[in-house]
Design a protein around this nucleic acid. Sequence first.
RNA 1: GGCCCGUUCGUCUAGGGGUUAGGACGCCAGAUUUUCAUUCUGGUAGCAGGGGUUCGAUUCCCCUACGGGCUACCA
Length: 510
Amino acid sequence: MTDRKVRVRFAPSPTGPLHMGGVRTALFNYLFAKKHGGDFLLRIEDTDQNRFVPGAEEYIIESLNWCGLQFNEGPGIGGNYGPYRQSERKSLYKKYADQLLESGWAYYAFDTPEELEAIRLEAEKDGEVFSYGIQTRGKLCNSLTLEKNEVEKRVATGENFVVRFKMPENTNVTENDIIRGEVTFYTNALDDKVVFKANGMPTYHLANVVDDYLMEISHVIRGEEWLSSMPLHVLLYKALGWENTKPRFAHLPLILKPVGKGKLSKRDGDKMGFPVFPLKWEDKETGETFHGYREDGYFPEAFINLLALLGWNPGTEQEIFSKEELAGIFSLERVVKSGSRFDPEKAKWFNKHYFQQKTDAELTELFKPVLKEKQVTASDGKVLKVVSEVKERCQFVAELWEQGSFFFLVPESYDEKTVQKRWLPETPGQLTAICGVFDSAGNWEQPLIKEAFSNFMNEKGWNFGAVMNPLRLCLVGGNVGPDLFKICEILGKEETVSRIKTAIKKLAEF
RNA sequence: GGCCCGUUCGUCUAGGGGUUAGGACGCCAGAUUUUCAUUCUGGUAGCAGGGGUUCGAUUCCCCUACGGGCUACCA
């Protein structure tokens, strides 16, 4: 089985937007496939039409594309094992349910959902939990308890029935999970899961096993929430006679909330100010919108990098990886067993790294749309200079504006604290004198401006800090920003002098 | 409740019978920057608890606690 071609699948259900845990599952599948020269497929598990959400499948595909997790087979692109939507494979499953029925691995059950619900409620009253299985199936309405011809009659007359897997008694099911090692389940504690529903659709369990078999999946890499159904799936392979091509299983740890209890959920993001979805998502029913990494300014390479390190590590101290690098060294054996809390701060750090990695020209291109949105017009040359000056203090493209808007906009107000501290009675006079120095300056370049300024200051014997701080205030509106003379240079001589004069005028009114 | 999985700094993690328990994020401090930020340097902080096994357990075993998942004609 080890010499089988590696074929893995990401099999989401289109019940809403894919969240970052799902993206990580897709990523690990993708990396595993790439590492072993295998195939990575996308399969849409839409056996429950009640939970179908329009747009969800498109969202999943767009998310995968944004992350660069290209699949080799799947909806839209096809492949030799299609179709890749379970709803389009509906006709395939019945014969396998029948096969289970014939071989005695499954039975018909006629209990209605209402009847079962009533039994459940009754059990609950006694502080017990009802389970349709070994202990109870003999007392319920199914082909195990009914006369044979009664069963045939019910099936023939089209009475609603369901097919349940007949869990074998007193059996230990042991399976070697790649991440967790040997895991053993005792069948008496398991229930008889429905494998085929009354509406003619298989449940997840049957569809999943049948499709993995038919699509020649070699490794099932999925979230830990599926670990409990591993024995059912293992038994299904056995019952269907597919043990020889049974895939290996790997159950990934879950991603947990940054604080508090439980796994990361839809709403955690907005509460704490970070996205839990790759892309922005609008819930058509409630009108709620959820943030996406893409729209929040994260680079896909950063997103992939942070996801990869959440629950996996290379065993070295390296933390920055490209997708290609990851594909070269990824291994399921190095996936951790415990759930990981997601840390939004570290996510920002990753983005900062990739942000700093970009060239000034690249960032300029990314910044231009922001400028346009702010209705600012400026030459590419100036934008490039601004980017070059402020990039080192940013983590996101949007921050270029926060850090550099004063290059394009005259300050509307002046930071009060700085005014109080730095705007002294002699300040206007000194700054007026500096304007004179600037006016007569020759080449308007940072070193020369600084030189002219310094010479004048020394001549006058003025304190540098006492003049530079108010000067910065005039140009920026506060006490932040890059090198003061670089700001002067980028602003240009006229604009610099003009801003100083404007500030003197405005602050005199105080 | 039952079954299954897990537990190393606040967080992500390395390690694994004898280590000064390593790194990263965060935080704090110093240096540089006549501003702020960056950058650099340094620091803070951890093996859940109890029993074994052993010359020696953070590492192996058991128990407890805690955390997580599953327990639908959902996936």
